[in-house]
Design a protein around this nucleic acid. Sequence first.
DNA 1: ACCTGAACACCGTTCAAGT
DNA 2: ACCTGAACACCGTTCAAGT
Lengths: 237, 237
Amino acid sequence: MTATREPRRGRPPGGAPRLTRVAIVDATLEVIDADGIDAVSMRSVAHSLGVDAKSLYNHVAGKDGLLDAVAEQILGSVRLPEPTGDVRGDLRAIGDAFRDGALAHPRAAPLVLTRRLTSLTALAPVEAVLGVLSTAGCPPRDAVPLLRGLVAALAGTLLREVRAGPARGAADAPGIARRQAVLERSGLPHVAEAAADLSRFDGDAEYAYALDLALDAVTARLGERRATGARRALSRE
Amino acid sequence: MTATREPRRGRPPGGAPRLTRVAIVDATLEVIDADGIDAVSMRSVAHSLGVDAKSLYNHVAGKDGLLDAVAEQILGSVRLPEPTGDVRGDLRAIGDAFRDGALAHPRAAPLVLTRRLTSLTALAPVEAVLGVLSTAGCPPRDAVPLLRGLVAALAGTLLREVRAGPARGAADAPGIARRQAVLERSGLPHVAEAAADLSRFDGDAEYAYALDLALDAVTARLGERRATGARRALSRE
DNA sequence: ACCTGAACACCGTTCAAGT
DNA sequence: ACCTGAACACCGTTCAAGT
């Protein structure tokens, strides 16, 4: 009769591949990619790592800290472009990089877009935008509201895009037809008239349009600022 | 010896004030106002109504349906302004009404801004914006992207504002000083230089600025469209 | 230093049984 | 028509006990 194996307790023997913070974050990202944010639990993540849920607390500040860490890892994966000196092009490139990062994990993107992040990696995109605006001759006092307006517009569109889910483009013809029919029967005249356009959604095109809209506004303000500055300089003579 | 009272089962006697859908939503809103969205549970809401959690299922489609109902009640409380014919002013008034509605329950606002709502009440603001754009001579095809860009910018700023919490304005001087110090030590030159501006946040001013930015872009597009249309009409002669 | 057993105080939700 | 008891399968988190 062999001795029954006692359930293991304490750290497993051997210099085995230890549980690590990034491994936990990666596993969480896999859970989210597969089943969405709501499927994340300390237990589900731990299970996918073959470990007990309570072990995660040695590497992560609870579930909330874990989700923050996921958001920060995504943010940290954004490859910000080198500035070229073309204000509009540079700002657009930053936006594109941000969008690419978000769309790499669409179901996790709301974490990046809605959680308040305080770490240093969260500041890199801010630094990039301020750098471009500074090169354009914009002092911080004026740059910060422009930055915030730009980020708000970008976050707003991306949030809409990832929320729309993978039912993007003209691929989902029956879904479009169904939505259109509902809108036409809404009893709201303008909604009914625009039903065909409201029921469609093309992520790439919507993003490009919304960013263009925001960049129009920002570059217009930069132009104004310069003009005002010039006028002031002139009147000082 | 008195008979011990059996725990009640089944509907309580008398034509008592029955549990109702709006009562449940109101109670949920009170929980959110007091303790935030995370404090909402079927049990906590039911408890505040002196009822069992399972009773809520007779009036609401689970917790998710309950949170949708909260978002829709807030959206339904938005008093949309009568259009005056001034495009920019009318769009701004719609934005203001939306913001007022959101700020009436700041902690619940993320529900309105991030959940995908499908009901008819969610379409009222859409109808309002499309109406204004239509009066301005903008056909649905062009109006829908403008609508979406505008909504994205609005949602983005409001989300930022409600997330910033009640630590708004210059009221929270020590908080501002602390944030500023962190930014100055970030090692990011432009962030450090803009630390004073980045650490401050004035909800009213940020909203006004961001909406102005978006309205600039929208009205510019409307102007272009008209000019293009005029040019087309001209070349057709 | 790091992992788990035991334990606690919670969750959302179904369904039949009651009135 | 509407409410609850019993029940199920979950949660996040603490802390001491182990290696």
